[in-house]
Simulated scan of single mutants.
Amino acid sequence: MAAEMHRLQATKRLNLLSLFTSGSTLICCALPAAMVAIGSVATLTSLISQFPQLIWISEHKPLVFSLAGAMLLVAGWLQWQARLLPCPADPALAALCKRTRQQSLWVYVFSVVLFVTGAFFAFVAPLLID
């Protein structure tokens, strides 16, 4: 029983990590494109001057997207494996187990949406503009 709870906790942690890596893809590509599209170039310039690390992320976007994609694949596999694990017999722990699974799934889906959005702005949108 403890092994199942440990696996669920590991899945939740990995899903949160995949959320952060997916968020970095959004920051590197979708955020600057959206700011330029709405005419907030001055805001983007001041943002980059405050956080120069954004330039590094944008320059290394294949690496950032590869790492984020790998994290999402591992998180998705763990999510798939955890769906069949039994929850504890105790009603309170069973409810917590089900709620954790549901929250973990939503975090994973949100991470995938962020990743796809960032990938569109990083790799597809520039092809459409040219």
Rank of each mutant, 00 (worst) to 15 (best):
S111A: 13
P88I: 09
V107T: 14
A119Q: 04
L93I: 01
F120T: 04
A89Y: 00
A119E: 06
R83M: 10
V107N: 05
Q79P: 00
F121G: 03
V112S: 10
V109M: 10
R99F: 03
L96A: 13
V107P: 01
V107Y: 11
P91G: 07
W80D: 08
P91W: 05
F121W: 09
P91C: 08
Q81A: 09
V113G: 04
V116T: 10
L93R: 13
P88D: 08
F121N: 04
P88T: 09
L105P: 01
C97V: 09
F120K: 06
R83E: 13
W106F: 15
Q103T: 11
L96G: 14
T117V: 15
V116Q: 04
Q102R: 14
R83Q: 15
W80Q: 12
S104M: 03
P86M: 04
F121I: 06
F120L: 10
Q102N: 09
A95I: 00
Y108T: 07
Q81S: 05
Y108S: 11
L93T: 01
A89E: 11
L114V: 08
L93Y: 02
Q81T: 05
L84R: 14
R101H: 14
R83K: 14
D90K: 05
A94T: 02
V109I: 15
V113I: 15
L96V: 01
R83I: 07
T100E: 08
W80T: 12
Q81N: 03
S104K: 02
P91S: 08
P91V: 05
L93F: 04
A89C: 00
F115I: 05
C87Y: 00
Q79G: 10
Q103K: 10
A82H: 05
Q79L: 15
P86T: 10
R83L: 11
L96Q: 14
V113T: 12
L85P: 01
C87Q: 03
F110N: 03
A92G: 00
V113K: 04
L114C: 15
P86Y: 02
A95C: 01
R83A: 14
W80Y: 14
S104C: 10
T100Y: 00
Y108K: 02
S104Q: 02
L84V: 09
L85A: 03
A95V: 00
R101N: 13
S111W: 02
C97R: 05
L85M: 08
L84M: 04
T117N: 10
A95N: 09
L84A: 15
A92Q: 10
V112F: 11
V112Q: 06
Y108H: 15
Q102D: 07
A82N: 14
R99Q: 13
Q79Y: 12
C87K: 04
D90R: 07
S111N: 02
P88M: 07
T100K: 02
Y108N: 11
V112I: 14
F110Q: 03
P86E: 08
Q81H: 06
R99G: 04
W106L: 15
F120A: 08
R83V: 10
V109P: 03
Q79A: 09
T100A: 11
Q79R: 11
